[in-house]
Structure formats: C-alpha cells, structure tokens
C-alpha cells in the first residue's frame, strides 16, 4: 500500500433491512474513502443512514435486526464484506474500533472497567497476564482518568458519563487501531465534557496516527474535528468536501438547510 492509498475504500455500499414483508433501504449505494491518519465527518439527521453505514463497515447490524449488505468495503485492499465471520472478528475492535453514543449501555455493569479493557487485550493480543494488567492501567491514564491504577478496580456506575466515555475510548484504542469510528460520541454529554472528549479524540488521533470517522448530527461537533465532511440524507451522501468549504459554501440545499438550523451564539432576544 502506498502512502496515499486510502485506508478504507467504500464503493456502492447499500444496506437493506428485511422486516416481515417490508424491505427498508437504509443506505442506498454510497462511496467514500478514508486515508491513513485522516479524520472524516458524517453529518445528517436521525434516520439518514449514518450509523448504519458505520456499522456496515464492520458488518454489524443494529440490535435485533438483520441487514443485507452489498457493494464493497476495502480495508487495506481487502474486501471486508467478503471475509469469513472469523476473519472479520480479527479486524473488528482490533484494526477498526468503534465508540458508541451511550457509554452506560456499552459497558458491562457487573465487570470492573479494568477487566473490560483486559478482555479486549486478551482476545486480540498475545501479551502476558501481567503485561495486560499494566496496559489496562496505562490506557486509562492515557484517556485522562486520574489515579488509573486504583480506578481499574471500579465498576462503570462509579464513573460519571464523561468518564465512562473515556473508558470506552480506552477499550477502543487498546489494540492501536488504524481507524476509530466514533458514532455520536458526545451526544449524551454536556458542553464542557463534550469539549473534553473531543479534545481527547484529537490528541489520541495525533499521538497514534489513526484515522477517525466521526458520525454526528451536530455541525458544531464536526467543525473542529475533521478534514473532510460527508453530508447524508435518506441513505445517500448528498455532499462531500473539505470541511471549511462545506461550511463556508454549502453546495447542496439540504446542507444549507441543516446549517441554517444550527443555533448561533450570536443572536439574542431583547428584554420581554
């Protein structure tokens, strides 16, 4: 693979849900690239297919559903859609990792956070038991959790929402993935914690040289985080481009409508 070759090449990806007699086309043939070290944003409203796209890359379906995928998802030249279940498991979590919106339901409430990080390392690395323990502490520290050595023994409920998201990020980066897919990673958090988590993602991306696929409905969140942005609407990418250009001069009316709806800090009401 040459330096400029995309890390991920998605071509004509389509995702269909089959529910009873009905077929719902959630993603209708989209194509995009993510280059090594690049951060790409996917913006759209709920139901536009952005989360289904993220999961489709790893051949995951939303809980309780079956999804039929077509097209191709090439990772380092290898089509992930054509891999065996066993082979895709070696990619999932290890080479391409994911962080989801809800940090509470994504963690196991009855396991310590240390054990959950260690599980990941045991599955995907051949580190010794002691090395795994050490690595878990190191990862918690890396995501900005103070007193990491003691806190590996804590359970998720002993952490705040923002801290739980940090734990999920620690699990996601534990095997040094090439690509981190973050699906609405800050939607459940308040502004200050959101800024902290975004800053953390930027720092980790810089330190580890990984690519970032950031999925959000929030143009404010995507603005400072990515080089390129794809706007999705009804299962299609309706606009793609360099982030500054898309914000300054949106080409598609839908992008313009979405940007216009974003509240600005600059307009206030006068006294009643």
């Amino acid at each position: 693979m040459t330096a400029d070759a995309p890390l991920l090449e998605v071509r004509d990806l389509a995702a269909r849900f089959v529910a009873r007699a009905e077929t719902v086309e959630a993603v209708r043939g989209i194509s995009f690239d993510i280059r090594p070290g690049e951060a790409v944003g996917f913006v759209g409203e709920s139901g536009c297919g952005k989360s289904v796209t993220a999961r489709a890359i790893l051949r995951l379906a939303p809980e309780g559903s079956t999804v039929a995928l077509s097209g191709s998802v090439r990772y380092r030249g290898q089509d992930l859609l054509a891999l065996s279940e066993r082979a895709i498991r070696a990619v999932r979590g290890r080479r391409i990792a994911m962080v989801f919106q809800d940090p509470m339901t994504s963690l196991n409430p009855v396991m310590t956070v240390g054990a959950q990080i260690e599980d990941m390392l045991r599955e995907h690395t051949d580190l010794s038991r002691t090395a795994i323990r050490e690595r878990a502490v190191e990862l918690l520290d890396q995501v900005g959790i103070e007193n990491a050595r003691a806190r590996v023994h804590d359970h998720p409920h002993q952490f705040s929402g923002g801290m739980r998201q940090r734990v999920l990020i620690a699990i996601a980066i534990s095997c040094n993935p090439d690509l981190l897919i973050a699906d609405e990673p800050t939607t459940a958090l308040d502004v200050i914690v959101q800024a902290q988590i975004l800053r953390l993602l930027l720092r980790l991306r810089e330190q580890m040289g990984m690519s970032l696929m950031l999925i959000t409905h929030d143009f404010g969140v995507v603005a400072g985080m990515v080089e390129r942005v794809n706007v999705m609407y009804r299962g299609r990418i309706v606009e793609t481009g360099e982030v500054d250009r898309v914000f300054a001069a949106p080409a598609h009316p839908y992008t313009r409508a979405l940007l216009d709806a974003v509240p600005r800090l600059a307009i206030a009401r006068g006294p009643a």
Binding site: G220, V221, A223, G224, F247, R264
Partner: peptide, 11 residues
C-alpha cells in the same frame, strides 16, 4: 465549550 459550526473557530 460550546461547539460552534465554524471550522476555524472550533479548531
């Protein structure tokens, strides 16, 4: 801390 929809400002 508010995320504003302006890439330069937000960066």
């Amino acid at each position: 801390a508010v995320a504003v929809p302006d890439p330069a400002v937000q960066r």
